[in-house]
Design a binder for these strands. Sequence first.
DNA 1: TGACTAATTAGATATATGTTGAATTTGATA
DNA 2: TATCAAATTCAACATATATCTAATTAGTCA
Lengths: 204, 204
Amino acid sequence: MQLEKLVAYHKALADPTRIRMLILLSEGELNGQTLAQRLSVTPATITHHATKLRAASLIQERRDKNTIYFSLDDYFIRTSGSATADLIYRRTAEGSAGEVDPTIREKREKLRVSVLKNFFTTEGRLKSIPAQLKKKLIVLEELVQRLERGRKYEEKEINTFIQTFHEDFATLRREFIMHQYMFRENNIYELNPPELWQRWETLK
Amino acid sequence: MQLEKLVAYHKALADPTRIRMLILLSEGELNGQTLAQRLSVTPATITHHATKLRAASLIQERRDKNTIYFSLDDYFIRTSGSATADLIYRRTAEGSAGEVDPTIREKREKLRVSVLKNFFTTEGRLKSIPAQLKKKLIVLEELVQRLERGRKYEEKEINTFIQTFHEDFATLRREFIMHQYMFRENNIYELNPPELWQRWETLK
DNA sequence: TGACTAATTAGATATATGTTGAATTTGATA
DNA sequence: TATCAAATTCAACATATATCTAATTAGTCA
């Protein structure tokens, strides 16, 4: 049955330790001992979780001597669009060391300007929602920065806000959440701190 | 913490009853009693699951007199790209009654021809993977129909097959799975029956 | 072969969760 | 107000699962 596979997939991702495992693996392959140490659990626990992640085709293994190295299954890495993959993949995009090459910064700014020019009308309305993730994020960030930090918004307010730019408020509202620009609780929306935003600059 | 939300989301979808609930709701809103009956559980169980689905923003509620009607949160409906949303949303796309307006059929054929023409070279190679879901599905279907029904493929075979059309075999292989054209078990790939395929014709 | 290391398995425990029937609450209506 | 229907809460149970320690297996290398 088909249903069961879906459930198994979500079960695999329904545990904090396993997600943290995937996040660690997104920076490169690691063996069981190391994973155990980094996650403060025993090797037995790693084996347990590895079994489930493997069953869901989320990780792969490679053996070298006595040691088994785990890594993300490319099957999984490729995803962007699921919030989960976002969280895990985002970190790999940019090395945690800061400092950006000035040439790179220039390029980014150029891209940003060009996206804004192409996707917004002269009146400032959004012509269409970019399909390409990087461009979409530029647009989302552009919109979201017009919201007030720390203020709580009703769903209706958000809808109205979005509609001044684009008719499809449901999609955009959802994208705000998915890419961590906002969060919602009991239908109240609020801006996330920018550290949590999915930033387009970090995508390769 | 951010991690916890992700986990909660996956937990919400990590139960067969809840997924079946969402599938039922994809055909329209239903109240608790009806859901209970359709799923062969008690109303208490529905309340329990509804609480979790609501917490994950997957359903909405509307009250009419004494009765509460549940429906999918548009937040969720919009998704396409996650296999889960695929499974749930697919059913809503085309009314189960068959028969398609011949004008519509013509339009579809035109779109298909145009996509094939635009995305394939004259040598039959794939120029690029369409970003738009509908077009992507046309391309995927075009590729996948060249595979043999009922035959089991090694991962390497699939890679080789795909590479005759496009270099990025990892992405395409993944798309085959995501959109239900194939399934895999222990790294053996096999075609799904066409009834399971995500068909582009059913997208509006 | 024997010593060593990484991984896995097995058994145990605590916690989480899906389900139910019974009791309670909520809202509508006669 | 009394009554009815739908939903929710509560208490109980069974099952699943995350984690650990200890024992075992697998594989390497001197």
